[in-house]
Design a protein around this nucleic acid. Structure first.
Lengths: 237, 237
DNA sequence: CCAACACTTCGGTCGCCGCCGAAACGTTCT
DNA sequence: AGAACGTTTCGGCGGCGACCGAAGTGTTGG
């Protein structure tokens, strides 16, 4: 009797994610990039036709957005909210009793360092978050935060400019890290830090996954700027 | 080939939510209370046997926890993370093109004021959040926040004590409000405010739902303490 | 001790959905 | 124009799972 609309649409969205092929597709898109239908079919281990069906459903439930480009179709997450919801689900998943022990090397790499939509996650993401909070550059009241004045100066010195015209997006958000089970930096700040590290060559993608590798330069710079010493090394590939 | 473990478990959790009956069960538990199997069967509009199967699955995927009590079995959300994930999904759902126009009176009531796990949400939740932030009692850097010194004094004057022995839980978190599409106060602070309002009779549950009604006393007090004038009235029942 | 009750398990039906082969559509390249 | 390619549509198959009736387990209460 309490069959509210909300219940139906909640089920629809969740069911849309709740298929292994589609979950893999979404996971592959979690780094915020846009991939073609066939790339996604490969990621999901299914034929092109099957993937096409899944993609259509994901678009219909507004989890994905499409962009036509020549004979390709690029799919990407429809919004940061989608990425947020997926990470939240991952957090629940990893909280449960570890029923899937066989954590492969790929998972190890992901746990080490990865992108989460457009910012850093994993041990690296947490390390950066901790570095900024311990120096009072960012204040996080548990899962939330603000950038202090000192923080703005520090970021400015690093060459990161957070000023943005249409400040549509949040400056400093947090996102629950499913592997570390703690919040890491997201929002415009998180994205800016991540972009910065890519541009300066501190980090690189491992193959074409969300997993990241910290370069030799990156290790030096991370120590220099953030005092991060710990071995954040993929140790894979 | 990128069939990571994470994809499988993500799908498993999402699929667990992705059934209308189970989604309704979870929705009914979103206020943080524990309900019996038959109550939940009623909420989901299915027979007791069917509900039992659903509940077993939800427990297996660690979305729900059970507590035996005599011949009853009380089910509740397994953790705040679960509530968080569901709210995140709701946010995605309400972001998509409004395909389900027929928003009934119950939805209206929910949008007005409701509990979200153990804190306030809907227009009321947002109003309280805004009141606290506009007076600098709480600093929210977009979706995150900390309680200021003035804020602590204010809350203390109100009779809310945030000191807690085992400070296991976060003091001030935020949670994305799916109806208002903005973050509202959660964490220990959010819970304390909600409890306080219940205890003093400012708010009451509408029937046995998550929806809330602001009492006449509540309206006065909300104006007194938070300067909230706007009509936050369920207008139902 | 038996009836009432809350809940779960079992058995069987039915519908939905994920899958692929084949074919159609649209774009690009030569 | 024709071939190659990326993508979608169609059709049919197979299996999972949601559902309920009936029966079983365990608890409460007279």
């Amino acid at each position: 009797m309490t069959t509210l609309v909300s219940g139906i649409v909640l089920a629809e969205i969740a069911a849309s994610i709740g298929d292994v092929s589609r979950a893999n597709i979404l996971s592959a898109l979690m780094d915020g990039r846009a991939l073609t239908a066939s790339e996604l079919a490969w990621h999901a281990n299914v034929s092109a036709q099957t993937a096409s069906g899944h993609l259509a459903k994901l678009v219909e439930t507004s989890l994905l957005a499409v962009e036509k480009q020549g004979r390709h179709r690029y799919y990407r997450l429809a919004s940061p909210e989608v990425a947020h919801a997926i990470e939240a689900l991952m957090a629940v998943a990893s909280a449960g009793p570890k029923r899937y022990r066989p954590v492969g090397p790929k998972d190890t790499a992901l746990r080490n360092a990865r992108t989460c939509y457009d910012h850093l996650a994993g041990r690296l993401g947490i390390a950066v978050t901790d570095a900024l909070t311990s120096r009072n550059y960012v204040v996080l009241s548990d899962s939330a935060g603000a950038v202090t004045e000192a923080g703005h100066r520090f970021l400015c010195d690093m060459g990161i400019d957070l000023a943005e015209p249409g400040h549509k997006r949040a400056l400093c958000r947090t996102c629950l890290d499913w592997s570390e089970r703690r919040p890491h930096l997201a929002g415009r700040l998180g994205a800016a830090l991540c972009t910065h590290m890519f541009e300066r060559g501190w980090i690189e993608r491992i193959k074409d996954t969300r997993a990241l590798k910290v370069t030799a330069l990156g290790k030096n710079e991370l120590k220099e700027f953030f005092g991060i010493e710990e071995q954040i090394d993929a140790g894979l590939r």
